[in-house]
Computed example of a mutant assay.
Amino acid sequence: MRLLILGTGGMANTHATHFSAVEGVELVGAVDVDPSRAEAFATKHGIPNIFTSLEDAIAWNGFDAATNVTPDRAHHPTTLALIAAGKHVLCEKPLAENYAKADEMALAAEASGLVTMVNLTYRNVAPLQVARAMVLSGEIGKVRHVEASYLQSWLVSKAWGDWATESQWLWRLSTRHGSNGVLGDVGIHILDFASYGTGSDVEHVFARMKAFDKAPDNRIGEYQLDANDSFTMTVDFSNGALGVIHASRWATGHLNELRLRIHGDKGALEVTHSTEGSRLAGCLGDDVERAVWREIDAGRVPTNYQRFAAAVMAGEAVEPGFRHAAELQRVLDLAMETERERRELAV
């Protein structure tokens, strides 16, 4: 598989590193509107061809598939162009800024017959995969209550850089620059983490969100800091469970942590994934009476990069696909609407 990398910012390095380690994958091209950034990226990863526009790369036509690591608002036009050119696509999340655009992308993918996948990276977490299998096999009985959180502290700590001076962070705080805040940035991750882990879709949603004061007049240079920093969400799952989902960039003490607790009428599971690693614990069988939790070995699972490459080479569909990501975006869009209208909405 000859792979083009579209966008050469920070996350693109992760894509390049992972894909270069997959047997049968050749990194053949890099695209970025900033030629110096594209050249530095290509040199770092040994990529022979550099382009400053996707149009030029498509005209060259020396690739089979592309991984789209552009900013959120560029996903829609660039991915549609790639599909129209007959290229398989791995797109970063979110698929688009809203459901209408995401649905258009999903429809185009479905009509194309190409391999299209969204990089919901936490599908790579083995404990999540094992937890889902245990839920679906009935090991914890009927799911009653779900708790999910995504906690980050980059508005508190400089461990990831200084958000107040670096554009790679500031755009995430400004709706004018294409950000839907923490809801749009990591909301799709924790929503997928919760719904995939519980094996159930969201049917109703109600959300609250808030942008906190961060600078004088909430502005730094050209950036109006008006995108939400924290959200809380209550949901009804299709399996009958009630869920509480929340995320924040103000979670002091948590660099990057996802947590999922699934409580059933016969047992419970907890998945934790952070910079320190992943863990699955269960309260099962006789341990339910004494509320004893024991760690469960989850092993390892293939990464999204490995699965996408394998799907392209085999010509087979792979999940999470564009339709799944579009339906997640529908929930996120409705969450924004519930905040404005202060009422629950059905998905």
Results as ranks from 00 to 15, higher is better:
residue 1 M to L: 06
residue 8 T to P: 07
residue 13 N to Q: 10
residue 13 N to T: 03
residue 16 A to Y: 03
residue 18 H to W: 03
residue 21 A to V: 06
residue 22 V to T: 06
residue 25 V to N: 01
residue 34 D to A: 11
residue 35 P to A: 11
residue 37 R to L: 13
residue 39 E to H: 09
residue 40 A to S: 05
residue 40 A to T: 10
residue 42 A to V: 10
residue 44 K to W: 12
residue 51 F to T: 05
residue 53 S to E: 07
residue 56 D to Y: 06
residue 60 W to E: 11
residue 66 A to T: 06
residue 67 T to V: 15
residue 70 T to I: 08
residue 73 R to Y: 12
residue 79 T to D: 04
residue 79 T to K: 04
residue 81 A to E: 14
residue 82 L to F: 01
residue 84 A to K: 08
residue 95 L to H: 13
residue 96 A to C: 08
residue 97 E to D: 03
residue 97 E to K: 09
residue 99 Y to C: 08
residue 104 E to N: 08
residue 109 A to S: 14
residue 112 S to H: 08
residue 115 V to H: 02
residue 123 R to S: 01
residue 125 V to M: 14
residue 129 Q to M: 09
residue 131 A to T: 05
residue 135 V to Y: 05
residue 137 S to K: 15
residue 141 G to A: 04
residue 141 G to F: 09
residue 145 H to E: 15
residue 160 W to P: 03
residue 164 A to H: 13
residue 164 A to F: 08
residue 168 Q to P: 03
residue 170 L to H: 09
residue 172 R to G: 04
residue 175 T to S: 02
residue 178 G to N: 00
residue 181 G to L: 00
residue 186 V to Y: 13
residue 189 H to T: 10
residue 191 L to V: 11
residue 193 F to G: 15
residue 200 S to N: 12
residue 201 D to R: 05
residue 202 V to I: 13
residue 205 V to K: 09
residue 208 R to A: 11
residue 208 R to S: 05
residue 211 A to V: 03
residue 213 D to A: 14
residue 215 A to G: 06
residue 218 N to H: 00
residue 218 N to S: 01
residue 218 N to M: 00
residue 219 R to I: 07
residue 219 R to K: 12
residue 221 G to C: 04
residue 222 E to T: 15
residue 226 D to L: 11
residue 247 A to W: 07
residue 249 R to L: 12
residue 252 T to W: 05
residue 253 G to F: 12
residue 255 L to R: 15
residue 256 N to F: 04
residue 257 E to M: 11
residue 268 A to F: 07
residue 269 L to K: 00
residue 284 L to P: 12
residue 286 D to Q: 00
residue 286 D to S: 06
residue 287 D to M: 15
residue 293 W to T: 13
residue 293 W to E: 07
residue 294 R to E: 08
residue 303 T to I: 09
residue 306 Q to M: 12
residue 307 R to G: 09
residue 307 R to S: 00
residue 307 R to N: 05
residue 308 F to N: 06
residue 309 A to Q: 10
residue 310 A to I: 14
residue 312 V to H: 02
residue 316 E to H: 13
residue 326 A to R: 12
residue 327 E to L: 15
residue 328 L to G: 01
residue 329 Q to A: 01
residue 329 Q to H: 00
residue 331 V to E: 07
residue 333 D to N: 15
residue 337 E to L: 06
residue 339 E to W: 11
residue 343 R to P: 08
residue 345 L to A: 01
